[in-house]
């Protein structure tokens, strides 16, 4: 099967990568439901999308706090009631926590796990059952290459994204044969506000538009696990192969 969904919900739609992805989907005639916290930034996004499409696109905006886990099942219910033809979901929210802070403050650590893993997993629990019943759809979630191996520089973020990766693996296994595709998207270094404090120099840094193109393609092809850009796959393969007694001495 090779078909982009017709109506896609994007959680965390005002992030750079999600915004670029929304613009590409829009150009392909996909109807979008954009979800993010700030109503003002959502309105700015939907105005932008509407002008680009020549006023033809259907873009619906829903403001919601995705860190309020208790409210997420009801949020999904309200979305399916409003849009009965949803057949795509992109979960794109998350943030890069301050690793040093997470090492000294367990509340900060827990918040990082909640926003980067538990929030998506709570949504996925509701979404998966729904899509499974309808026997179709594509669920894509933005993980990270950081989730492939724990490193001292960002293991809290890495642990959250790693948990998400495992969850998605299991979900893909469970939904296999149901007509629902589960796509794990693993971007590497991307030039976005999230990474502004890095030295962003060199060949490994990708532009958000390039990552967005990869996401659109992964949805259309219903891929399982995608590294964005592709070269992170062999890099991470090597990193995963390093034996732990060696790895623990490294500063990667």
């Amino acid at each position: 099967m090779n078909a982009t969904p017709r109506r896609i919900v994007i959680f965390g739609a005002t992030s750079r990568i999600a915004t670029e992805t929304a613009r590409l989907w829009l150009a392909r005639g996909v109807h979008l439901v954009v979800v993010a916290r700030s109503p003002e930034r959502l309105r700015m996004l939907s105005d932008d999308l509407s002008i680009r499409s020549g006023g033809l696109a259907e873009v619906d905006a829903v403001a919601a706090d995705l860190e309020d886990l208790d409210a997420l099942p009801a949020l999904w219910d309200s979305l399916t009631q409003r849009f009965d033809d949803l057949d795509g979901v992109l979960i794109a929210h998350g943030n890069l926590p301050d690793q040093a802070r997470c090492e000294s403050d367990s509340q900060a650590m827990l918040r990082a796990i909640r926003v980067n893993a538990l929030s998506a997993m709570t949504l996925l629990t509701a979404i998966a059952n729904d899509f499974e019943k309808r026997k179709r759809g594509v669920i894509g979630v933005i993980g990270s290459v950081a989730g492939d191996r724990g490193r001292k520089s960002n293991y809290v973020y890495g642990a959250a994204k790693g948990m998400l990766t495992l969850f998605l693996q299991g979900l893909r296994n469970r939904l296999h044969g149901s007509g629902v595709a589960v796509v794990t998207l693993k971007p590497g270094f991307v030039i976005t506000p999230m990474t502004q404090d890095f030295e962003r120099d060199g060949l490994l840094w990708a532009r958000p538009e390039a990552v967005a193109r990869g996401i659109v393609q992964a949805f259309a092809r219903r891929r399982d696990v995608v590294y964005l850009p592709w070269f992170w796959r062999p890099i991470l393969w090597v990193i995963r192969m390093i034996p732990e007694p060696v790895f623990k001495r490294l500063s990667l």
């Binding site: 750079r16 700015m44 996004l45 105005d47 932008d48 002008i51 680009r52 020549g54 006023g55 976005t192 506000p193 502004q196």
Partner: peptide
Amino acid sequence: LLTQGMDRLITFDR
């Protein structure tokens, strides 16, 4: 001040 994230269209009169 990197401005590329400020790249939204606001209104367009066709």
